[in-house]
Amino acid sequence: MNQSTKTNSTKKESTENDNSQANARTISSILTAPELAEIDHEISHAPTRSAVAIDALKIVQKHHGWVSDESLSGLADYLDMSTAELDGIATFYSLIYRKPVGEKVISLCNSVTCWIKGYAQLEKHISRQLGVGLGETTTDNRYTFLPAPCLGACDRAPVMMVGEETHLDLTPEKINQILEIKGGQQG
């Protein structure tokens, strides 16, 4: 809390002194060169800077795992947008994480076909095995457990994604293998 207050007041002073220099400083300390290069590439084929807002949020998230308040305001400056406007976009989209997540996100499909084929049982199983509920991260920071809308593989339900991998025809045993849970261990 103290830190963020400090950042804000520093930023306010510099804004009064020299807006563009202050922005350049803020951005270069928050967004890294590789991130900026990827964001610039998106801007190169977009009609306005703010048009790449969603792509840029995804780029920041790819590099940091999530989008912090500091990244968000740095990015907003870079895209000539207000922080509030960019946060409105970031919080609208379910796959932009505004809170830290674990190394991998478990996205367990809770839509209709997976629900019919045993979603509730699998949700309980994962919760019990990892010691976390939906929306929570394991204490070892390996996994964040989230529900997901239909993942488009209903013929192989129940389905989940772990990171970028999709896993089909789930059973409790199969989940243990995928998540490398050894015989009933508590997380």
Binding site: S111, V112, T113, P149, C150, G152, A153, C154, D155
Partner: peptide, 11 residues
């Protein structure tokens, strides 16, 4: 943007 629950054809 195939997201209609129960739909898995465009994939």
């Amino acid at each position: 943007d195939e997201m209609e629950p129960g739909t898995f054809k465009d994939r």
